[in-house]
Computed example of a mutant assay.
Amino acid sequence: MAETLGSLCDKLTIVKLKQWHSEDEIRLKSLAVQEKQLQQEMNEFISAAISGQIPIARLTFASNKVYKQEGNYVPDVLGSIGEIFSQLAHVNCNLWHEQEKVYEFEKVAASEKDQVVKQLAILNLERNKCIDGIDGNFKALVEKLGSQKNN
């Protein structure tokens, strides 16, 4: 996947989750470095996009997920970049906890296994919608700023 603001936001939420769930000092130091790198990369990406160094077409990289929509409801993703970033963080928290079940899948009751797999799929679709939503909002903002500069 090409780097976009949404993909960088996604990576940052995952680093924060790893920090939250880790007690290993060496790992925490490595994650702190990753966090700073991602913050810097996000700032550089935003600056480059606003200054026109990144073509508008490269500000989005739609996930274009192909899936059977009937029976697979994925909530709409609406709001500002900050609101969608918050929703992305929430979805990634839910994904983290659902994925934890898979690591010990043998302990999941047989009657619940299908629901765990289905929930992982739905959460991943929502995650991609959030990433696309951040990217779409950011692209619109950059376009708006660009048109204001030209007027």
Rank of each mutant, 00 (worst) to 15 (best):
G146A: 02
V74Y: 07
L31V: 12
N43E: 14
D76S: 13
E126R: 13
E83S: 05
R127Q: 12
H90D: 15
G71V: 08
N72H: 09
G52F: 05
N43M: 06
F45V: 11
L12G: 14
H97N: 15
H90Y: 14
R127T: 02
V102D: 00
T4N: 02
Q119F: 02
N72V: 05
E126W: 11
E106I: 07
Y103S: 01
A140C: 00
S47I: 02
Q53R: 10
L145W: 12
N128D: 13
E44K: 12
L123C: 05
A2E: 09
T60M: 00
V66R: 09
W20V: 11
S80A: 07
K68P: 00
S111K: 10
F61W: 14
K29M: 01
K149M: 08
A140H: 08
G6E: 01
K18Y: 05
R127P: 03
Y73H: 15
I14K: 04
W96N: 13
G52D: 05
N43G: 11
A57D: 12
M1P: 05
V66Y: 06
L141P: 04
L5I: 12
N150E: 15
L5E: 07
L123N: 03
G6W: 10
N94Y: 02
S30I: 10
L123E: 06
L5S: 08
H21S: 11
V66I: 14
V66F: 02
D76T: 15
I56N: 08
K36N: 13
M1G: 14
L141S: 04
L12K: 13
L95K: 14
M42I: 15
G79D: 08
Q69E: 15
I54L: 00
Q34R: 13
Q34K: 15
N94W: 00
Y67D: 01
N92M: 02
M1I: 08
R27T: 12
K149D: 08
E25T: 06
